[in-house]
Simulated scan of single mutants.
Amino acid sequence: MPKMKTHKGAAGRFEVTKKGKLKRRRSGHNHILEKKSSKRKRRLNTETTIHANDQKRVMRLLGVK
């Protein structure tokens, strides 16, 4: 049986932490940022973990067991 290859698109977007959780960037932080009012500060630059429902699928894409 051949080895499973890492999905390179997923490898650039997700990262496995030391405890085995998956980190991802928040969406909506790349362009058209000046139209948002300065009073509504959103914390989009922080990283967050992946929801438990998606964790199995992303782990398979990354080749982690």
Score class of each variant (00 low, 15 high):
A11R: 08
Q55E: 14
K56G: 05
N30E: 08
T6I: 14
R60N: 07
I32W: 08
K21I: 07
P2L: 08
A10L: 01
K35A: 06
K56S: 10
T17A: 05
K3F: 09
L61H: 02
D54V: 02
K18E: 07
R57A: 08
H29E: 15
K21N: 15
G12F: 02
K56M: 09
R42F: 11
F14T: 00
L33R: 15
N45K: 14
F14M: 00
H51W: 02
G63D: 04
K21Y: 13
R24W: 01
M1D: 04
K18H: 00
G9H: 06
G9S: 11
L61R: 01
H7R: 04
K36F: 13
G28I: 02
H7K: 12
N53G: 05
E47C: 10
R25W: 03
K56L: 13
R25Q: 06
K3T: 10
K65A: 14
N30R: 12
K39P: 01
H29M: 15
V58P: 00
T6Y: 07
K35I: 04
T6V: 15
L33C: 07
P2E: 09
F14D: 00
A11E: 15
K36W: 08
K35V: 13
K8C: 01
T48G: 08
S27M: 12
T49A: 03
Q55P: 02
M4A: 14
A52Y: 12
K3C: 02
E34W: 11
G20E: 03
K3R: 09
Q55Y: 06
R13F: 08
M1T: 04
R43H: 13
N53F: 03
K39S: 12
K5G: 03
V58G: 01
K3H: 06
H29R: 11
H29W: 06
E15W: 03
L62E: 00
E34Q: 11
L62C: 05
M1F: 05
R40K: 14
H29L: 05
R57Y: 06
G28L: 10
E34V: 06
R40Q: 12
F14I: 00
M4G: 08
K65W: 10
K36I: 09
N53K: 13
K36A: 13
L44N: 03
S38M: 12
R24Y: 06
R57H: 10
H31L: 14
R24I: 11
